[in-house]
Design a protein around this nucleic acid. Structure first.
Lengths: 142, 142
DNA sequence: TTGATATAGTTACATTCGTAACCATTATTT
DNA sequence: AAATAATGGTTACGAATGTAACTATATCAA
């Protein structure tokens, strides 16, 4: 049991730092090359990976707030990277689907993502990298 | 070398998720009990731990943006939790110091922090916890 | 010295964010 | 079937954020 508080070994602090470090490295890519926000990138990636989804499904996949998803979808639609298809059974729902332009943007960012991933792997070493992934995954159930 | 992109095993994604999970658990405390933002909590904690500092020193300690620090300092000052002391050598500088009220707020949040820390430790187990801390620290040099 | 440059810190502005309120539609209850 | 509740999604509004411009002071160079 720890009795002394030390900010720099406090997990929320450590996590946040490391997370920004890792995230910003990749953010620079989608931000500078495509002028995308993180929410937009995440929505694009989710649709790219899972095909057509509703906004609510994107929310559950990503954990993003629904207003973020709503706005991201709107802005991606503006670029003509996705289309909305009204669901005929349930007219509240729109099925969201990447256009071919959206898919190639996604493909290009995937490549960049894999390159970036490799960079971090090289830095950490394969063992530490997978250890870290496992620990982070475990934390999801906290 | 990985050739397929999978969002859910992509490190920026994993990190961000885990970070939010861990951070929000503690944020609820300083937010609900003290109406503080993360920046404010971090500035308070830094001053609590290191004693009197200048704004720039807080920036280097925390990595926070200087406007965030400026605003956090202002708002903590409003609560009478810190005082500014003009430096007589360099009149651009203000030395920032917690008042006794600030110190007791800090002390109380430290206790909550230690409790929270213990909760995460228990969840992960001592070994995984320190493994994780080590990996996150390593990432700072990425 | 004085002019140029750098640093500490704040502020104006535009953007982003989260909460809550809000439509529209569907499901459930009575 | 009418009333009520629940759901998908958007929007209004206030708070928080980052960039860049700004003020004031200090340092450096000529």
């Amino acid at each position: 049991m720890k009795t002394e508080f030390d900010l720099h070994s406090f997990l929320p602090f450590l996590m946040h730092h490391a997370s920004e470090k890792v995230s910003f490295g990749f953010r620079d890519i989608y931000r500078d090359q495509y002028r995308m926000t993180r929410s937009e990138w995440r929505v694009l990636a989710t649709l790219g990976q899972y095909g057509a989804l509703t906004a609510t499904e994107i929310v559950t996949h990503t954990g993003l707030h629904k207003t973020k998803v709503s706005r991201a979808v709107f802005s991606i639609e503006q670029r003509r990277w996705l289309k909305r298809h009204q669901d005929e059974q349930d007219r509240r729902i729109q099925r969201l689907e990447l256009t071919s332009q959206g898919q190639s943007a996604f493909a290009s960012l995937c490549k960049a993502g894999i390159t970036y991933d490799q960079k971090v792997r090289d830095f950490l070493g394969e063992d530490d990298f997978s250890r870290l992934s496992a620990l982070l995954t475990k934390l999801n159930d906290l």
